[in-house]
Design a protein around this nucleic acid. Structure first.
Lengths: 236, 236
DNA sequence: ACCTGAACACCGTTCAAGT
DNA sequence: ACCTGAACACCGTTCAAGT
């Protein structure tokens, strides 16, 4: 029973990589708001100030965190990058975007972080370079390829910032009381005729699906809208 | 010189509206991060705790702030809402979105706030109801109209979350030293051929414009891409 | 009724001190 | 060299106390 290793594994030296992994762990468990210098240090069995040796501050930590996620996307997309036939730009781009989406689904906090800390970083530049190259090889003009990158926005990385959620508390809250819900719907149809009709239309078919809307299907619909528009401009 | 009004105008009673106006004022001046219970109270010549009588907490304050902005958008869009000819859905939608964009340009902090506090509120429901109604009147199916709302995402409200900024520090930082910039561009074209070509292409025409990219033009390009895609689905 | 003071449990970050 | 303790200037929020 000599001085064996203690329960807290402080022996391994602290590294930037370990700090980032700890931060990702906290984010996965407690959300982005839970990521705190002190909470990250806790995971590592260390005091908050020890982190400052490997990270210049919280901003740097979060920047590095989003960079790591984008790197993960780049690796996932590296496999099938260049379409054999340049004319296959559409399925190539589509697959790339849906691969990025799949990676982000493993890190629910990443989209918000990309929004606030998404400056143009090396990993992001690499991602958009591959993205634009596919378009150029397919014969798109430089201008159109450039515009396309802007047009996709965050959708190029597999997520879309939506505000529109038909299954919102404002609509669902009275679900427990069917009569009140009907009265609400009546009041709704006076002031919000389209929303009311849509909710009525949805509830007829929603029995089969889990929620009101299928996020993946909605995402792909928007994606195809953009791809169609792009197709029209290919030879302009 | 009797007890006239003091310099600090505390006499007017505190109201929810005054609290919200003060918060917007702080946001306009110091950005979203500057909006603090204490800073808002300061503007009103009052202690932070006095706000809790009119606002249930900071979350409530921010929710109310975005609600006010969306109301402003709704008012701005109320003028020319229903197209005379239902077939004019495209210009009607386009105008609506660009009007929303113009309103948001007066509140630079609003997009970020819509992202974090954009739950489906009464004002937002009203906005999307008008939006969807235009589509329905034009003959779009309920499904397509519903999908369209998702597809536009925040773009329906006049802004797009972009990550792609060609004029980023990574590219521009060596601008002061032309030789180093050229060396960087050479290194860039090895690893980032598309980005390098695009930057070269941009700098030839950028002399006429202010920055690298014209935000408004890029926004409208993406908007028209989506409208084109929607047009294709009109009669499906 | 309306506002304030003092306090609590948090933040990020600094700096001198420990080992 | 690497980590810690104590401290600073902030947060949002509570609660009893003032007027």
């Amino acid at each position: 029973m000599g001085g064996g290793t203690t329960r807290t594994p402080r022996r391994r030296p602290l590294t930037r990589a370990r700090v980032l992994r700890a931060a990702a762990e906290v984010a996965d468990r407690s959300g982005l708001a839970g990521v705190t210098m002190r909470s990250v240090a806790d995971v590592l069995g260390v005091e908050a100030m020890a982190l400052y040796r490997h990270v210049s501050g919280k901003n740097d930590l979060l920047d590095a965190l989003v960079e790591a996620v984008v790197e993960e996307i780049n690796e996932a997309c590296a496999a099938d990058d260049t379409p054999a036939d340049p004319d296959d730009w559409r399925p190539a781009l589509r697959r790339r975007i849906l691969t990025a989406r799949a990676v982000l689904q493993g890190h629910p906090w990443a989209p918000a972080l990309l929004g606030s800390h998404g400056t143009m970083s090396p990993a992001l530049l690499r991602y958009f370079d591959r993205f634009g190259s596919i378009l150029r090889r397919a014969g798109f003009s430089m201008d159109t390829a450039h515009h396309a990158l802007h047009a996709f926005g965050t959708r190029a990385l597999g997520f879309s910032s939506e505000l529109f959620q038909p299954g919102s508390p404002a609509i669902e809250e009275t679900e427990a009381d069917p009569e009140a819900a009907l009265a609400d719907l009546a009041a709704l149809s006076a002031e919000l005729p389209f929303i009311a009709a849509m909710v009525g239309h949805l509830s007829h078919e929603a029995a089969s699906t889990i929620g009101w809307c299928d996020d993946q299907a909605e995402f792909e619909f928007g994606l195809d809208l953009l791809l169609d528009g792009l197709e029209l401009r290919r030879s302009r």
